[in-house]
Design a protein around this nucleic acid. Structure first.
Length: 340
DNA sequence: AGCCTTTGACCAGCG
DNA sequence: TCGCTGGTCAAAGGC
């Protein structure tokens, strides 16, 4: 299938801001088309079990901590998590944007207290560089996430502030304890626990797209039609590193898209310029959507600082120690990742 | 001095 | 062929 060929070498990450005053729906890149296709938004193709297995393994293997289902029933099974999420996700007015994107496909939501950075930083989320793998991280505005067809009555209100959208997500959410998150991090930080390998991992920083652990040099900027803010182009400054990324902003200057292209062929710099180190964004909701076994999506809605419980601030490498004010104003993030 | 951003120009792809 | 758009280059200037 041609579309599969198109995405076979693509890893896509979508970072989407919830509010985009001017909703201009650009052309979908092949990956997104494929996403809609795999997620049932295309021609009704059912989901491949692959991604579920993938995500399942992610959580079973790396999130051993107890998690809470929406009714606060503890469960340790990803399947249970998924079942719990699916029981509340499809249909109804409480449908989330990820749900819309998924077109009813599998999805679960993780509210605040869980950092997607943990996932993003995991070798599974950004798997170690396979020699033949070319990562391509793409993001697109939420309207693109909707499958083709007439507008849904339950379309996510783009004018809603993050806090409101959080409520929408929250009702559909189960919780993953930060303790579990920490354990997951320890899991990843401990090479002995990682069957994949112990290479460094990538971080998608929502608020500071240029600060994801690597050093970037801006090499271009182009105005986007219909957008007040231009698209910026960055290159990894590491010698011979082919990775590039482009950052798009909404008309209010908020980052709406971060698109990575290529894969780093080097470790993340130990000593960052400016001494900032990592400072990824606290994460709110994360939506995992099953796909072709190579793609996942999560949504980061950090607009609810009240739910933020930073019990991980004992770690310099922690992503969660942002001030609540910053968390509150950070963006919803959708991430779609392709694995090959 | 080195690295970065800015910015206009250039080039390629596409309709 | 032309115009549009996306992506990149490179000079200039700033930190």
């Amino acid at each position: 299938m041609a579309v599969e060929d198109d995405v076979s070498s693509i890893r896509t990450t979508t970072l989407v801001a919830p509010t985009r005053p001017t909703i201009t729906v650009p052309q979908r890149p092949p990956a997104i088309e494929t996403a809609a296709y795999f997620f049932g938004g295309g021609d009704g193709l059912s989901l491949s079990p692959g991604p579920l297995s993938f995500v399942s393994s992610l959580f079973v293997d790396n999130f051993p901590a107890d998690v809470l289902t929406p009714d606060n029933q503890r469960t340790t099974s990803f399947s249970q998590l998924l079942a719990g999420a699916m029981s509340v996700s499809p249909g109804g007015g409480g449908r989330s944007t990820a749900g819309m994107f998924a077109g009813g496909g599998p999805m679960f939501t993780i509210p605040s207290g869980f950092s997607p950075s943990s996932l993003l930083t995991s070798p599974m989320f950004f798997p170690p560089q396979a020699p033949a793998q070319t990562g391509f991280v793409h993001s697109q505005p939420q309207p693109q996430l909707q499958p083709p067809g007439p507008p849904r009555p339950d379309t996510f209100p783009h004018h809603m502030p993050p806090s409101t959208s959080t409520a929408v997500h929250g009702r559909q959410s189960f919780e993953v304890s930060t303790q579990g998150d920490q354990r997951a991090r320890n899991h990843y930080n401990n090479p002995g626990n990682n069957n994949n390998n112990n290479r460094s991992y990538n971080v998608v920083n929502v608020d500071k797209p240029a600060d994801d652990g690597y050093n970037w040099r801006k090499y271009g900027q182009k105005p986007i039609k219909g957008c007040e803010y231009p698209r910026s182009y960055y290159k990894c400054t590491h010698v011979n590193c082919p990775v590039k990324k482009k950052v798009e902003r909404s008309s209010d200057g908020q980052i709406t898209q971060i698109i990575y292209k290529g894969q780093h062929d080097h470790e993340r710099p130990q000593n960052r310029r400016g001494g900032g180190g990592r400072d990824s964004t606290e994460v709110g909701d994360i939506h995992f959507v099953g796909g072709a076994g190579q793609m996942m999506e999560f949504s980061d809605d950090s607009g609810y600082g009240k739910d933020h419980e930073d019990d991980n601030n004992d770690d310099d490498d922690d992503d969660d120690d942002l001030p609540a004010s910053k968390i509150r104003y950070s963006r919803i993030v959708h991430v779609i990742i392709y694995y090959t």
